[in-house]
Nucleic acid binder design. Structure first.
Lengths: 165, 165
DNA sequence: GGCAACCGGTTTGTTATCAAACTATACTGT
DNA sequence: ACAGTATAGTTTGATAACAAACCGGTTGCC
């Protein structure tokens, strides 16, 4: 199916390739856009992670939340929202599920009756440990891919997240 | 609201900050994960782009598709799917809208009756030009943030997209 | 030539997400 | 102290995406 109508327009030279076929289109200007590559990379990474963890009923959004709560006992939903980079309203159902699943507990704030703090239960810590194993495994693959430029990459990504307005 | 219940657990030292408040939680292990930073950065970038373009009724998914079609007249939906990093089924409604909007045209493949090629109409080229202006503007901000490490960053992101399985 | 496996594109169902509207509470300035 | 504004969390509605099931059509193998 690969190249039907594009013999003039495409610069591919591997018609006979036994390989799964790679160069079937011209990225064009898109190829110079950071945003484009950012999306492709994030998407590929996210899917890979989901495939690995999904079959163990570990929802992808959970790891960041559990981890943040674990490292910040008493953290509020708002801080969690900023820390995980998701909208506060996105977190509501996640936290509800964690609450009803018995993985986290709410502690009413003494100073602000609108708010509450979150802590992990024992079950939650256990859950987080399960996740951590999977997540570490996944991120190890990323580490292998980026090699010793990891620090640099993270610094760049952090700058992007912080400075784009 | 910031730090109600965590005075022991958090290492913040700017209770009086007049700034919009930044260090309100401890990233913890998460901070060492490439996947985490990738998601934050992509998300921030995507939102920023959407805010810029959304108000001009330019849907975010459209740019990559229009651009790829523009650079590859006759490209098939499958190639487009791989090129834009989205599932083929995601593309179906996008292409339908572009078709009915008169921005692209289908040309039945001469060799495979299941498939068809896509080309931009004049309206589509015009649309793409509009987008390009906005997209270039957005990506210029990203360029400014990453500076001269752009090539490096893109190389890393490309490797991630290609090699994560 | 015919059957089985594969592949391109569409349909359908589910999910993650944001944004805006809403409620209740807290803060600020006069 | 009170009025107006800002903030925390929830609800509701819209959207973009994937995945699996599906329908031709194609290809390869016997």
């Amino acid at each position: 199916m690969e190249t039907d109508l594009d013999d003039q327009t495409m610069s591919r030279d591997l018609t006979n390739a036994s390989e799964p076929q790679v160069a079937e289109f011209e990225p064009g200007i898109l190829d110079t856009y950071i945003a484009y590559h950012l999306r492709l990379a994030q998407n590929a990474s996210f899917r890979a992670f989901q495939r690995k963890t999904g079959q163990h009923d570990l929802k992808p959004g959970w790891f960041a939340v559990l981890s943040l709560i674990g490292d910040n006992p008493g953290i509020t939903p708002m801080a969690l929202s900023r820390g995980s980079g998701r909208d506060k309203s996105t977190l509501t159902p996640v936290l509800r599920d964690m609450l009803t699943g018995g993985y986290v507990e709410r502690i009413a704030s003494a100073t602000d009756r609108r708010s509450y703090g979150l802590t992990l239960t024992e079950a939650g810590k256990c859950r987080l440990a399960e996740f951590s194993a999977r997540a570490a495994e996944h991120d190890a693959r990323l580490d292998a891919i980026v090699g010793e430029q990891k620090a640099e990459l993270i610094a760049l990504l952090r700058r992007i997240a912080a400075e784009i307005e």
